[in-house]
Design a protein around this nucleic acid. Structure first.
Lengths: 179, 179
DNA sequence: CTCCACCTACCTACCAGTAGGTAAGCGCAA
DNA sequence: TTGCGCTTACCTACTGGTAGGTAGGTGGAG
């Protein structure tokens, strides 16, 4: 694996546990077997590193989401969030950054915002046109992001399933009752 | 206002913007006109300070929530979260701490967990006994916490309303606060 | 020989936390 | 009423350690 990719992976893992202020260049250096300066060789500033991490995350996530046809996006999204929790045992990267966004470099906040914008747009086609699709997509996104948050703080993955029951797989694949 | 309370207020405000690692004792000292050591006089460690902040927040929040009768708790809770966003312009304290919880002192994480436990318990009575009340309460909590997160990162309070539309008005009760 | 990856060595600023001092106030006894 | 022991509420000055970031070198591959 390329050094740059190892740096990005280490940074993503760190951020998804402790957030932007919860890791340092030296942490990443230790994780990758480099030195502080070695990490700076690839990313001049912390903000630049985190922006790149979010770009990679964004693209990877959207690719997986858009593999599913519009009608199955909700279930797919639920699956992806669940995987984030159960396989990685970690928060959604952009969810954590969003929470801290009041104290982040502007371009990092902007990246998190873009992620949720893209998610919402990809989701719109899953809802019937007549209703408030925008609101329905946002509500769903909110519920998923909140569910992962509740599960993480509780240290209990089942909470994610409880808080998202009925979403996607059973009742709601293509006809969630919008409020 | 007592010095200790000014410290607690400053710390709460700071945490709700940047999280646990997003503020320092010196920030609080500047906010309150004290010195670093002056803040340490009241709170020996950062963890102790943050634990106290969450205790005060928890109690204040639950008091306001439980003013409403069980049947109106959902609307009340939505109102309180909306107020947190629109009046304070800030995240829910425990939501932010929950997101970062992977990198927090244990007793701080525990406080955040307790907050959501209390919220869920208070909410249970708002749901019909026959169904999966636990899941319904968790889903609602998740949606609210996620909605505030999406609104914060977007810098657009309307997103909170969109993502929680219908909540507390159809199946739940009205969401106008009865003051 | 050049370029690139990465290093050593270092900077300044800041971190949480501590040591020890001081000024003002308390309850209480003479 | 004065004086004493003790406490509260801070302060200045400092510690060891870490933060993000930089200047300039080294070693190996092409």
């Amino acid at each position: 694996m390329e050094t740059q990719d190892r740096i990005l992976k280490a940074a993503e893992d760190r951020i998804r546990v402790g957030g932007y202020n919860g890791f340092s260049f030296r942490d990443i250096a230790r994780d990758t077997g480099l030195t502080n300066a070695g990490v700076h060789h690839y990313f001049p500033t912390k903000a630049a590193l985190v922006v790149k991490v979010t770009e990679v995350y964004h693209q990877r996530f959207m690719t997986k989401l858009n593999e599913a046809p519009p009608k199955k996006r909700v279930g797919r999204l639920r699956h992806l969030f669940g995987q984030s929790l159960k396989t990685d045992g970690k928060m959604c990267l952009c969810g954590l950054l969003a929470a801290e966004s009041g104290d982040l470099p502007n371009d990092v906040t902007e990246q998190a915002r873009k992620f949720f914008g893209a998610l919402k747009d990809s989701l719109l086609d899953s809802f019937p046109q007549s209703n408030d699709r925008e609101g329905a997509a946002l509500a769903l996104l909110a519920q998923l992001e909140g569910a992962i948050l509740l599960a993480i703080v509780s240290g209990d993955n089942d909470i994610f399933d409880q808080a998202t029951r009925g979403m996607g797989s059973d009742t709601m694949v293509n006809d969630r009752k919008p409020n």
